[in-house]
Nucleic acid binder design. Structure first.
Lengths: 332, 332
DNA sequence: CTGAAAGCGCTAACAG
DNA sequence: CTGTTAGCGCTTTCAG
């Protein structure tokens, strides 16, 4: 068995209470007693039993990081950046538990005891049941990436509707009139927001959108590819395509190239997310940057603030998206 | 405060022991007593306190998933697939704790108490200290992606040296004589293995490798790009480039295109990993597929086996890599 | 400044 | 089949 504070107490000739206090640097204990005990602990290679601590302190030292899904529809880059962002602020004070919301059949294991706080990277309105459950349990919460107005819940997101608006406005300003849309995964909030931005821009410039110029997508390469193939089969092929993420944009570019056409000479393409490869495909992809790593860092930071000060601020933080001009759009 | 087994006991008119047994479905308890207690627990919305369970059972219900680094050099796709693979097998029996080894300044918080088992996706020999520590603590271990021969440690990896050998042999068989190498991140085992495979193939076919035909890389887009630029500046530009991962291959392709040349007509490019976008870039990338998700799934599966049967098999599992032929190589 | 005693919620002998 | 009792390792009153 491993060493406990009692073992140290025996060797130091003090009570285990004193050891506990000394190791927690309590001001009640004399400096030299503390030092003696610390040295002893070090020698014995003592490590606190966090389960015991958790039990008595009613803290788990766990932070949950939840995604709508791990198995379908979350892109690798998004996932990676979100974890990095959170991980960069928690250091080793907390353990980061990563999970997909759709991995749970019931939420009963989600309790205050098992999570000191939770960060929910929410991509769908369907996550609301999960969020409500956690909020009802009194778990400090930060919801990222999707607007919520649950009381006491932190909310950090980027203005995707505006980003899409900018991107599509840009296409129009470049003289494009026949602009098609490849939508995001249905049910994902981001898909809705980006579509809204698209529509607002089109409306703003009084352009009409023929039904054939909209195609559903799944946020993956393949669906972008096949949606574009449909556009290419039309009588009047669009001169520009707004894709609701970069992966679909890449799939679309592939379809265009395969048909013997060129980007951007024949058809312009715009993506969304500014994934790491966007600058490196040929032609480099014009896209909308969304500060995912920053969102998750800010969310984590504020959440830790709430946890450690036992506050429950209901802050909402909206970060700006940015249009990144590259080479995949041609001016007509 | 939340309901405990004692609350249930009081209401059911039994001892808390009986409740504990009933809820754990002990054969010692009569069926109808069990049922009564279960119903009561349901009504009260009882959830077990896992900290208390952990303390007495000496299990944490935590599985650690460690990467060499989260902040530098691990590619998003790799990371994503590894987590997915592991997550798909653990269901909700365990919590998955994700961490970078380089996040730790000291390992003392890594104990048997805090992890029922650990999966270490090891990309560097430098991880060995961490592995040794965990092994010494008696934590059931699965090391993925890098060979280790520590006793009692499961080891699952793919034959990357062989994969690189296949890829380079293929280039040679297509008639290429001037073949350059963009290496992986120095210190990463995979970088060494892939380089070894490259060299073995070159040697096998009695080709020589001028020093100018090797460039260090960092596994990212940018380093592939700049390495390729160097090759393009040479008097004798190579006719083919073997890149130690797909991201560098994409960077290299970018540099080639920028120089006014074409892939594969002027220069052939081969990557490694078969990242999700490899099939969608233009031209589609010929590359070596490495079954990351399968590796992590197998690793997790075997680890759970070891944990739950209290075995410590020292199994080593070598999965095959596979050359995926696409369009980025030209036959001379 | 230090110690004795109680208790966090649960499981596991041991008795009946 | 059920209950009594002890104890996992730690923190926290309360008393000195």
């Amino acid at each position: 068995m491993s060493v406990t504070i009692k073992d140290i107490a025996k060797l130091a000739g003090v009570s285990h209470t004193t050891v506990s206090r000394a190791l927690n640097n309590s001001p009640l204990i004399q400096e030299d007693t503390k030092e003696r005990i610390r040295v002893l602990a070090e020698q014995l290679d003592y490590t606190p039993n966090f389960n015991a601590k958790s039990l008595v302190l009613d803290r788990s030292y766990n932070l949950g990081l939840f995604f709508t899904t791990l198995s379908k529809g979350t892109s690798a880059g998004f996932f990676y950046e979100a974890i990095r962002g959170v991980n960069s602020v928690i250091q080793d004070r907390y353990q980061l538990i990563v999970k997909g919301i759709d991995d749970y059949t019931h939420f009963q294991s989600i309790t205050r005891k098992s999570f000191d706080g939770m960060i929910i990277v929410s991509q769908s309105d369907d996550d609301q049941a999960f969020i409500d459950h956690a909020a009802a349990k009194g778990i400090p919460l930060a919801v990222l990436n999707r607007p919520v107005d649950t009381q006491g819940v932190l909310n950090v997101l980027s203005d995707e509707e505006q980003g899409a608006f900018l991107a599509v406005s840009y296409l129009i300003e470049q003289g494009h009139k026949r602009i098609a849309l490849i939508e995001g995964r249905s049910g994902f909030k981001s898909a809705q927001n980006r579509k809204d931005g698209f529509e607002r821009a089109m409306k703003h410039f009084q352009m009409n959108i023929p039904p054939a110029y909209r195609r559903p997508g799944l946020y993956d390469l393949e669906s972008g590819h096949s949606a574009m193939q449909q556009f290419l089969a039309l009588e009047e092929v669009p001169t520009a395509v707004f894709c609701c993420n970069d992966e679909m944009a890449l799939g679309a570019m592939k379809a265009i190239t395969e048909s013997g056409r060129h980007v951007p000479d024949d058809i312009s393409v715009v993506g969304f997310d500014d994934t790491v490869f966007a600058a490196y495909v040929t032609p480099a992809l014009t896209t909308v940057r969304r500060p995912i790593e920053q969102i998750s860092r800010e969310g984590a930071l504020r959440l830790l603030g709430n946890i450690e000060n036992k506050r429950t601020e209901t802050e909402q933080l909206l970060l700006r998206t940015e249009l990144i001009l590259r080479e995949s759009v041609r001016s007509l």
